[in-house]
Design a protein around this nucleic acid. Structure first.
Lengths: 309, 309
DNA sequence: TCAAAAGTGTTATCCTTACACCCATGT
DNA sequence: ACATGGGTGTAAGGATAACACTTTTGA
């Protein structure tokens, strides 16, 4: 049995997109006033990457980590340039946690993720920033190309990713990358000055790209795996569950059909209790039926979308 | 702007699951008589991981590589043990290629992927190996647990992943990992002797796990992205296209509905030519409409499954 | 009494699955 | 003639999307 090729040494860095639902909003854990995702070294004495990630996240946040999933591995030269030429491979993870965590040092904090991607929040209808800022700038970028073929290509990409009529909430990463390419986000840096960047907070390095990857993955996943429950408290009302899914997907859902889908699939069971916190009629409390994960390959919460708010 | 944490140095290795359709069968490129996937070092002078991968694959195979997609990054300690204690991070990729490629050195070759996973081929009905070998051994493994709770857990996992009635072709990796855990594949090694392993060729290191990851990813992907065409010749008949999808998915499809789905979605256009190679009535030739990738976020070939062959 | 949110029932529409059948060629 | 694979039309069933309406609480 031959040994595999001997590769050259580089450094490994782990990045985490840590998501929690706080005050019914999707929040990510950040450092440096929201400009960095938590990241740490992979220490060689861990048996796997996941245990390494769990170790420093839990050390940093003093809180156990729930669901964890690998996102992507980058090793772009552009990253290395920022760190004195040493090659860095960065492996990013998505982590879901149920409760508020507080980190030690580095002034950490939870940030609403729509702070970074305001055009992704359609819960209140079409976001204003889209019509007022994003689309006009993209159109200017299209017109800036002299070659008509290039113009056509740019227009098609804009139509696919940003068309209002057929908005696809899963394309978070593609949209961010298009804006990057168009020089409309500060991270694009260098050549293009980006005198007047779009609304949406930037981050250092490629952390906003990693965040976009995490949001996109999570939005896709809730449709075919019941991962929302990793973010919910043990007991919840169906209304709260709907708000949670809406917060993640960034779009309003159709109430009646959402409820039907949820209990048709047997995802939840009544606890017997009620919650009178919401103002109207008290709502029954439910809990996630963990057993279902073992019973069958279960689908997530399909999204019963509604066009008009 | 602070610099990120300085991680410790390790070695990077790239692995490729290179897939082609040869003689209407799904084949993967291997070395060492089918026991290894092609792998190579990541050389630091490449701008990205993908270009690094493309470079050595093309150097080794003398053939350009088509579609490429990252699969997963592993850094399990068990791998390192096999290579004198040095820590290795292995980043694996799925690559699709349209034509026969021949590699230099290391006696490479294409292998039918069902050689490694015979229970995954349902094109001719339920595979014999499932009823005759896999299920009985899994049942013995279930009964081997003394704790009834453990037995119940094992039974549920078997039911989810291997139930004949609700076979899910995407669960290739989960099924392999269950067999690994049950000690039914030689790679499980060490403790359990595995006196009489299951049919299905083993591979060195965790290469069979990586292959399972690639097959699973590809099977899932053909349902929502038109990637089959990366494996087809420029012109093809709808019958050949169906055979291709069946080969990848490992199950028979419903002819009429497959055809309807394909052209309803506008994925192909007629070339005008016909092929008289198949014995019966000559079939029209089609080509993939590449433009469609730009026109809209296009779905792949949904699988119109048929229960009875 | 009214606003606000919970909760139930029914209908229209589309997509998937399935079935039945005809067409063009080689032997 | 008939076997073989190519190709077309249509009906049944189920899931989704949409609509109308009732119930229970707090202010």
């Amino acid at each position: 049995m031959p040994s595999p090729a001997k590769p050259r040494a580089v450094a490994i860095e782990l990045n985490a997109v840590l998501v929690a639902l706080i005050d019914e909003e999707p929040q990510v854990l950040t450092l440096e006033d929201g400009a960095l995702l938590p990241s740490g070294p992979f220490e060689g004495d861990h048996p796997t990457l996941q245990t390494g990630l769990r170790a420093w996240v839990e050390r940093q946040t003093h809180h156990p980590l729930g669901y964890v999933e690998q996102l992507y591995t980058f090793a772009d030269r552009s990253r290395a340039a920022a760190t004195s030429g040493r090659r860095i491979v960065s492996i990013s993870y998505l982590g879901l946690t149920r409760e508020r965590v507080t980190a030690a040092g580095h002034e950490p904090g939870w940030q609403n993720w729509y702070r970074y991607f305001p055009w992704e929040d359609w819960r209140g209808g079409t976001p204003a920033v889209l019509a007022r800022q994003v689309m006009p700038r993209l159109r200017r970028w299209i017109d800036a190309a002299s070659d008509p073929a290039v113009r056509r290509g740019r227009r098609q990409r804009m139509d696919i990713n940003f068309a209002e009529a057929s908005w696809n909430e899963d394309l978070v990463l593609q949209r961010y990358e298009l804006l990057y390419e168009a020089g409309l986000v500060p991270e694009a840096g260098g050549r293009r000055p980006t005198t007047d960047p779009l609304p949406g907070a930037p981050m250092h390095y490629d952390h906003r790209r990693i965040l976009a990857t995490g949001i996109a993955r999570l939005r896709a996943k809730i449709k075919y795996r019941p991962v929302v429950f990793e973010l919910m408290p043990p007991d919840f009302t169906l209304g709260q569950l709907q708000l949670a899914v809406e917060a993640l997907a960034g779009r309003p859902l159709h109430k009646q059909n959402f409820r039907r889908l949820i209990d048709q699939q047997g995802l939840v069971e009544e606890t017997g209790g009620v919650s009178a916190e919401t103002g109207g009629r008290p709502a029954k409390l439910y809990r996630f039926r963990r057993e279902i994960l073992l019973e069958r390959a279960v689908a997530g919460s399909k999204l019963p979308l509604s066009r008009s708010s």
